[in-house]
């Protein structure tokens, strides 16, 4: 990827961000319910019609749609995402506070997934259509069919409640044990999915000509697998890993809710349930940005991991 392509991508990201924010803004305007009412109710106050109107005026909610949108956009450009209606704190600091737990969970679950999916997929491909392959494929098939919230609850029930291996509810918010169940739950579904992907990629690579070439030069099966086929087959999967990481970083609502994990996902659920529009808008904007940034980073990384990209300029 050259500089021109990079700038084009950055431009694209900006356009999408504007589009996404416009879309959420529109959605919020069309939504039933009154944010000001919700706000007062969450404070335990039942406001009069007069108070409601005054607050609306003060918050600029009576202005035309585009005025409101551009005011919000201008503030965002100044780094101000507004105040959360329901938590009475700046949206930016709320988001920032959830970043670290989400990052920890994303990385640990990706790591566990890779630990299982890569070897399993490789074994399955190398022994394709042998018993071990059928077993692995069978398990992954059941794996992708299990609802992740159910997997989470089962893990919680058996590991924490029945076997007492882990605390059900942790007293220490920073304890490493908090990470175990959410990580396992997330890694479970991803492992099932990626084992199949790795298998497909390795099988495809095994049929490439250079495998015959290497064999014809006297390389052992082992060397061919480990020095050529496996590294090459992971290359096309990097994009998919990037997409997964990008979505994990946006928060994993279901899992965070099950384990009351303080990540971006559970913040988003709170925001949506409380009709906390500034927080919803800030959240959607933020995760879109992260998701696209990760994807851009992945594409840039191909410059370094796939030598073919560099020479071709615009691929």
């Amino acid at each position: 990827m050259d500089l021109k392509e990079f700038l084009r991508r950055i431009g694209q990201i900006i356009i999408v961000l504007i589009g996404v924010s416009f879309f959420t803004f529109l959605l919020v305007q069309l939504a039933p319910g009154d944010p000001v009412m919700t706000m007062y109710q969450s404070m335990g106050i039942i406001p009069t019609e007069e108070v409601l109107n005054e607050t609306r005026e003060a918050m600029g909610l009576n202005d035309p749609f585009f005025v409101q949108y551009f005011r919000w956009l201008a503030n965002v450009l100044k780094g101000d995402l507004g105040m959360s209606y329901s938590k009475y704190r700046p949206v930016a600091s709320l988001l920032a506070g959830r970043m670290w737990p989400t990052l920890k969970l994303s990385i640990s679950s990706m790591f566990v997934m890779l630990l299982f999916a890569v070897p399993l997929g490789m074994i399955s491909a190398v022994y394709s259509n042998k018993p071990i392959d059928y077993i692995v494929r069978g398990i992954t098939f059941f794996g992708v069919s299990m609802p992740n919230f159910w997997v989470g609850l089962l893990l919680l029930y058996f590991l924490a409640m029945k076997l007492n291996l882990l605390p059900v509810i942790s007293t220490d918010p920073n304890a490493l044990s908090n990470l175990v169940l959410p990580t396992l739950t997330l890694a479970f579904a991803m492992t099932a999915k990626y084992t199949r992907q790795v298998r497909t990629a390795v099988l495809e690579e095994l049929h490439k000509d250079y495998v015959i070439g290497a064999k014809g030069r006297g390389e052992s099966e082992r060397a061919i697998l480990f020095k050529h086929v496996f590294p090459n087959s992971l290359l096309p999967l990097v994009t998919m890993f990037g997409l997964s990481l990008g979505s994990l970083l946006g928060g994993t609502s279901v899992v965070e809710v099950i384990f009351t994990y303080p990540g971006l996902g559970s913040l988003a659920i709170d925001a949506i349930k409380a009709m906390d529009y500034p927080l919803i808008q800030g959240y959607v904007l933020w995760i879109s940005l992260i998701y696209m940034a990760v994807n851009l980073a992945v594409d840039i990384s191909y410059n370094f991991i796939d030598p073919r990209i560099k020479g071709e300029g615009k691929a």
Binding site: G246, S247, V284, I287
Partner: peptide
């Protein structure tokens, strides 16, 4: 279509479903 797939689908689905009720 590009815009729709440029961020995690489940998040948008949640937001839409949540806001619409």
């Amino acid at each position: 279509a590009d815009m729709m797939v440029s961020f995690p689908g489940m998040v948008l689905a949640m937001a839409v479903a949540g806001i619409m009720g």
